[in-house]
Structure formats: structure tokens, C-alpha cells
Amino acid sequence: MRNRPLFLKLLSAVIVFGAWEIAGRIPVSYAFPTFLESMSALVTLTLDGTIFTAYAETLKPLVVGLVISSVLGVGLGLWIGLSAKFDWLFSPIFVVMQSAPLAALIPLLVMAYGIGLTSKVFVVCIMAMPVIVLNTSGAVRNTPSSIKEMGRSFLGSDLDIVLKVIIPAASPIIFSGLRLGVSAGFIGAILAELKITPTGVGDIISYSRSIADYPSMYAAIFSIILLAVLFLNLLEKIEHLLFKGNYRGYVSD
């Protein structure tokens, strides 16, 4: 069957959403609305515009934080990857940050920067930055030495080799680092809204929970997960398009 993958994807969605619907009808819990109830709540939220104003609010720290972490993270990563000194100095910090539960810094950020936008941007940054830095520096360090030697033997200057060999060779991994950073940034943005002050989508979630309007709460959560997954999928598609063949083409394949 030619459309088997598509068919199975649909079937899988029907099974999961069907199970949700049935579990909601039993109901397994007073706080478990059916799938259809949640979807109609989502339609209501969309039609009265609530969801758009909420996302305008939610995306602000996310976008600002991601822009800052991308620029700073890729810059730092290149620097670390190219210089043994900076590698020694900075790598340990990001290695520790990568394994550490950085969310624990949130109460501190709130104390230092209050409950406004600054704190939320910071949360997004500390979540997104380590993976961006580590991917970038690792990719730069692992540029195949034979193409670097090639650049040198054909008389490339150091700058030539960085710009024309190392950065293009590292860019697929830098890009996937950015994608992972975006994924972590979403976690941070929502965490900030739930923990620091309920604004945007976090506000819909907290508010509808407090008035026991569970369908709206589930709808908001559904929408943010959907948004994140769609956006990350889009990034992955772009990645495949941009770097088609870039992973391959070495002798080992």
C-alpha cells in the first residue's frame, strides 16, 4: 500500500484521541475532560481571540531569549571551538550547565530581576544556551582534519579556513544545536509563565485550573505543545533542505 505511512499516522492519531475521548467519558477523573470538549474549548478560545493575545505575551520572552542565546551561544561556541584557551576556560561551565537542573536558578532570578520580562528572558536563555554553545564548539572542534589540511595545502589563510571550511562544515550541527535550543527555550518559557507570573498561555492554564474550567486548560496545553512541535518540525524540514548531503560525502559512506 502506497499511503501506508500516512494511513498509520492517521490511525495512530485516531487511536490516541479516541482513547482520550473514551477516558474523558467514563470519566477517569473529574479533571479529565473529553477530547471533543477540549477541542471545542480551543475553538472558543481561538474565536474570541483570547489565544492570540496570550501567545503574543508568551512568545515575547521566548523570541527575545532565543535571539540572545542564538547569537551569544553560536559566537561563544565558535570561539571555544577555535581556541584551546577559551575551550579550557569556558567549556567546563557549559558542560556543568548542560547536566545541571538549571530550572533551580529561577527563584534566584526572580529575586534579582523581579517578576517581569527580564527574568523570563533569562529563564529561556539559561535553558537554551548550553546546548547551542556545546553543539557549536563540538562541531567546530570536530571538523574533519583532512579538509582543514586541504585548505592549508591550497594556501588558505586562517580566516579563509574558518570562513570557507570550518563554519560551513560545522553548520549542520550548529543548526541542530539551535533547534535543540529552541526546544529547551519552549520548556523555559512555559516554566517561567507557570512559576514566575502567570501571563499569556500560562495564565490561561492557571486561571482555568483555578475555576475548574478543565476543557480550556487542556486546550491551552494542547495548543502550546502543538505549536512547539509544529515549529520544531518546520526547523527540522529546513535543516534537511539546507544541509542535504552535507552529512554525507565523506569517504566513510
Binding site: 591550497f154 562544515a169 544541509f243
Partner: peptide, 30 residues
Amino acid sequence: PGEDRAFVFQDFALLPWASVIRNVAFGLEL
């Protein structure tokens, strides 16, 4: 490295993101 010598590599050392013509011209580009 100098202009009087050119290298051919065991693992080819081609730039995977560059077309054949850009790869061939890369020494001249540098």
C-alpha cells in the same frame, strides 16, 4: 604550503556543501 605543490588526499577532502566545480576551483579561490 606553497604554490609549487598540490595535494591529493586519501579521503578526497572534498567540501560536501560545494558543487564539483566549486570544489575543483577551490584551490584557485583560496
